[in-house]
């Protein structure tokens, strides 16, 4: 009799565990990352925001590039989200003030968890950017379009302090060449 009760209890607990795991998996699979991002903006009180791009580092990690604040959207943010058993969760966010005004391109260096990220606003006429470092490395950063245009580069090798940015228009003509400096010690 006693043995039977124990068997029943164990079975019920096992079934409940498996059931709730499957349900949470199902819910997570259908969870809309854009809704999560909206919710995080509300939590951080970063209102009037605009998302430029969502980059998936792998299946469970995503970087969101955005800018916020009325009226100029000059606070450029990057937010890392991680997928856990509770769904997408906030990890860290960095906000940098960059007023584009008349500048062609601006940029800033930041480390978010274990990634190095360079990003900043760029003129709306620029269709493509080529970055050339002093030691001859060449990068083509992504460009996200929303309220402004924002370029970003998730760097996987050595960071650089200075680089030439060549901006191209939609016809492939050079619009502008600018040298940008990055403070690798930011935020100290």
């Amino acid at each position: 009799m006693k043995k039977r009760i124990i068997v029943i209890i164990v079975t019920v607990i096992t079934l409940l565990t498996i059931g709730s795991y499957l349900i949470s998996e199902r819910l997570n699979a259908y969870q809309d990352i854009e809704e999560v991002i909206e919710q995080e903006f509300r939590t951080l009180r970063q209102y009037v925001e605009d998302v430029y791009a969502i980059e998936y580092l792998d299946d469970d990690r995503a970087l969101v590039f955005y800018s916020w604040d009325f009226p100029a959207y000059y606070n450029f943010g990057v937010m890392e989200l991680e997928k856990t058993w509770r769904g997408w969760q906030f990890v860290e966010a960095i906000s940098n003030r960059m007023e584009r005004k008349t500048a062609w391109v601006k940029g800033t260096y930041a480390e978010i968890t274990d990634r190095v990220i360079l990003r900043g606003p760029v003129s709306g006429n620029a269709e493509e950017i080529v970055i050339i470092t002093d030691d001859g490395r060449e990068y083509r950063p992504e460009i996200g379009r929303a309220e402004w245009q924002m370029w970003y580069l998730i760097l996987e090798d050595e960071p650089f302090e200075e680089a030439t940015f060549i901006l191209y228009d939609s016809d492939g003509e050079v619009l502008r060449e600018e040298v940008l400096q990055f403070d690798l010690n930011w935020p100290e």
Binding site: S95, R97, P187
Partner: peptide
């Protein structure tokens, strides 16, 4: 924090 970041044009790291 949101207010002070906007008002003083600060950079911020939300840990």
């Amino acid at each position: 924090y949101s207010y002070i970041v906007r008002e003083y044009a600060l950079d911020a790291v939300y840990k």
